[in-house]
């Protein structure tokens, strides 16, 4: 039973991280219908920036909370900047091009970013400092749920809440929903569509950066290739929940996280990634619209 609870919590933690990345996919897809292949790389950039910031700042002997806060800020700022720049350089010139063009461009961007970090820093796995503090109150339950699990779950829940408030009530959030519904119409009522699309990339990248910092601190090591697998899995989660739907992305992520956790715990850990990919293939074949997505028919 204890093993079950442990797997359950580790699955939830995984799911929470996937959710932070999947939201970026789903928001971008909802607004411009593009699978932003480079999104996993943004998550990697976020984690790397946090690591670099933490290492530089630790030279100044800052206390742990300040270190955590400042590296988080750095990760969010730089990841958003990268997300914005990618949109400007690789996607904006291709609006209105055939569907395959932005997708190939996105794959190119993803390969570029991976190798950029590889050449600029290192291709090896490097240790990531434990930025999330250990709570003494959780000591008796250490075997079941760790402090970082709890922090990840709580902060993800908080971020989801803030995000839904942002989408629902702010001016930018409303403009995002309008643009997602109908881009031409949104432009006609005076929404600066290009700026809204850029804002979507920035918000998605910031969420991925938070995810990057949390998971890196949880796992304890990163390299420049972590974005690829994480990106595909988060995409799987987004598709599972119904791409374009924000609650769907969260639901899909939690289901994927739990599935992976139980499958590796009870079946075999060798095939961890195979489970996720098989799930993706199965959903796309049997329910391409996802759990919460609407089936759309194409009109000519």
């Amino acid at each position: 039973m204890e093993y079950f609870v442990e797997l359950f919590f580790s699955g939830l933690t995984r799911g929470a991280i996937y959710a932070l990345i999947a939201l970026g996919y789903t928001m971008v897809y909802g607004i411009i219908g593009l699978i932003n292949f480079a999104h996993g790389e943004i998550y990697m950039i976020g984690a790397f920036t946090a690591l670099i910031a933490a290492t530089v700042l630790s030279l100044f002997n800052l206390p742990l909370p300040a270190l955590l806060f400042l590296s988080l800020a750095a990760a969010v700022i730089w990841a958003s900047a990268y997300g914005y720049t990618i949109e400007r350089v690789a996607y904006r010139p291709l609006r209105g091009a055939p569907r395959l063009s932005p997708l190939i461009s996105a794959i190119g961007m993803s390969i570029f970013l991976q190798n950029y970090v590889l050449l600029a820093q290192t291709p090896d796995f490097i240790p990531f400092p434990a930025l999330i503090p250990e709570f003494a109150a959780l000591e008796p339950y250490a075997g079941v749920v760790g402090s970082s699990d709890l922090v990840i779950l709580l902060s993800t829940a908080l971020i989801m809440l803030l995000l839904s408030l942002f989408i629902k009530f702010t001016r930018t959030g409303k403009a995002m929903r309008a643009t997602a519904q109908d881009r031409t119409m949104a432009a006609l009522v005076g929404i600066n569509v290009n700026r809204i699309i850029a804002a979507t990339f920035v918000v998605g990248s910031a969420l991925a950066a938070v995810g990057g910092l949390l998971i890196a601190s949880h796992v304890g090591q990163i390299n420049c290739f972590i974005g690829f697998i994480a990106g595909i899995k988060a995409f799987t989660a987004a598709v599972l929940g119904g791409i374009g739907s924000i609650p769907g992305a969260v639901l899909g992520s939690l289901i994927l996280g739990l599935t992976e956790s139980f499958a590796t715990g009870y079946v075999s850990s060798d095939y961890e990634d195979v489970f996720a990919f098989s799930l993706l293939v199965l959903i796309l074949i049997f329910r391409p619209a996802g759990l919460l997505g609407k089936t759309s028919t194409e009109k000519v």
Partner: peptide
Amino acid sequence: ADYRMLAFGTVLVAMMV
């Protein structure tokens, strides 16, 4: 040769644009 993959990524983006 180290910059091979970097160049491939750039080529994909630049060709599309």
